[in-house]
Design a protein around this nucleic acid. Structure first.
Lengths: 121, 121
DNA sequence: CTGAAGCTTCGACATACGTCTATGTTGTCA
DNA sequence: TGACAACATAGACGTATGTCGAAGCTTCAG
């Protein structure tokens, strides 16, 4: 189990962090959250994630998404990173391995990016 | 002007990309968007961004946010990265330099992370 | 049991990244 | 003008990252 996965496991069930605009993140919050953003911070990984996320039921076989211009081992490497960041989960079904997005994590990240409320005049 | 800034400038005024769950990103969209996520993918940068974003008017002097445990040049380096990614803008006012978050960009990133609608039963 | 398909792991390599110290630049104030 | 404060840039250095080819593991068809 990765260090990040341990951190994720140690979190309360509720979403990690306040909106970035609400208050400054603690060191620990920043560490955890940055790891998630980092996982989406590579073009190939982002495309893989988008391919999974936009599939029916937000789930796809590796064979369905592997066409992103890099070798198959590289695809596998990137999917592993996304999984370690808590963004994807995987499950083997017979010959194929399916990856699925974690909707709660996606929502939590979205919440982080909530813009600040307009300042009173 | 950085390559990324050129890409940002070349975009339509409207937010860049569809939700990651809506359809798979094109290569160009992924390139641009990944650069933004990447900018937030470092703990120190994320804390700096959060410090600016949570300040009144989403704006702060470097001197207000520089205490993140790294040297002053490193802070400057990270702020530059955030600026190149289009997440922050800067302005000199006398002795001090103020950084401010771009609310539209923040909102666009948040929209990217919109969870998929529930599948019909 | 054997072979093949689907995916992961391993080891190597070039490049990118985060950090530092030293030095520049810009603005303020006496 | 000179000294100082606030930031930025330059250069160096160790580590992390993205990529590949080769080899390993699982599962299924025959």
């Amino acid at each position: 189990m990765s260090k990040l996965q341990e951190m994720v496991a140690a979190l309360p069930a509720e979403p990690c962090c306040p909106a970035l605009t609400e208050r400054e993140l603690t060191v620990e919050e920043a560490e955890l959250t940055a790891a998630m953003f980092k996982a989406l911070g590579d073009p190939v990984r982002l495309r893989l994630f988008s391919k999974v996320a936009s599939h029916p039921d937000s789930e796809a076989c590796v064979c369905d998404i592997a066409d992103v211009g890099v070798s198959q081992p590289t695809v596998s490497h990137h999917l592993k990173k996304l999984k370690e960041a808590g963004l994807l989960a995987s499950e083997r079904r017979g010959t194929w391995v399916y990856y699925r997005v974690e909707p709660a994590v996606l929502a939590a990240m979205g919440r982080l990016l909530t813009p600040a409320p307009a300042t009173a005049a």
